[in-house]
Design a protein around this nucleic acid. Structure first.
Lengths: 137, 137
DNA sequence: ATCTTTATTGCACCTGGTCGCAATTATACA
DNA sequence: TGTATAATTGCGACCAGGTGCAATAAAGAT
């Protein structure tokens, strides 16, 4: 669903800056760093302030349109639409391996049941130690 | 186990700054923000640079002596010894609920088996939406 | 006890992200 | 269409944390 529609539903104002940010997130590759979003937005509308963009990314995150994950020393934002998968990140060598989403499903259920907390894992990053680094020990 | 011993085993040098950092982490409450660690260390040895402390916290994390988690807009460091538990954090209201560690055990196993990745969850922070915020919708 | 090597520290500077506040603008309503 | 009002923007200052580099100090060898 369009981010703009969601914002409207929440009684938030539709500004040109917000439209541009939503456009970037809907387009293309589905994963952007804050710097990339800032660059794309400013290339279409020079002078847009970085605070505006950070603030709007937060708002979109709160609204549930955008997910944020910290991947290998970088924060990336992705739109809800793009399929989920997770990342296993080795804290020793920094390597990142993609990981199937079904792995997390049982956990979502148990947290939901036990704590009445709705978690919906999208692009979760799990820290650990990879096979290669374990061998080096 | 003492952080200092671990550092020695890895061939790293034992400096007064590192000893102070390890002291803070071993003491007391078991959870410190970077700012608290900097303050404690500098109170015992004025002039220690913050970069030194950040660098050493990273090194201790890599060495597996210290765990780092992001809790409600704050990064906290804790020593390996202190018992684990996890946190469920509501992305809407910011509320944090403690959560039992047994919940994560099955996941540790499945990641280990399927991806040969050793994860050892300590003080994990899981984002979600709490019961109260769900009701408001 | 001194020397050599290599890691570590302190320094100055940079970067990403945040905040308070005054100016601006989207929206609802007359 | 014009106006009121509350949200949003842009700005500048600010903060936490990180980096490159020259100076320093720990550890092992002599």
């Amino acid at each position: 669903m369009s981010c703009i529609t969601t914002l409207k539903e929440k009684g938030l104002k539709i500004t040109p800056q917000r439209i541009l940010i939503a456009d970037v997130l809907h387009d293309g590759k589905g994963q952007y760093t804050a710097a990339e979003i800032i660059e794309h937005v400013q290339s279409k509308m020079p002078g847009v302030n970085k605070s505006t963009i950070y603030r709007n990314l937060d708002i979109l995150e709160q609204a549930g349109c955008v997910y944020k994950s910290e991947l290998d020393h970088e924060v990336v934002y992705h739109h809800d639409d793009h399929g989920h998968h997770h990342h296993l990140k080795c804290v020793q060598c920094g390597k990142v391996v993609d990981c199937d989403e079904t792995l997390l499903a049982p956990l979502e259920d148990s947290v939901q049941k036990k704590y009445k907390f709705r978690v919906d894992f999208k692009h979760l990053v799990i820290d650990g130690i990879c096979q290669d680094c374990l061998k080096l020990k």
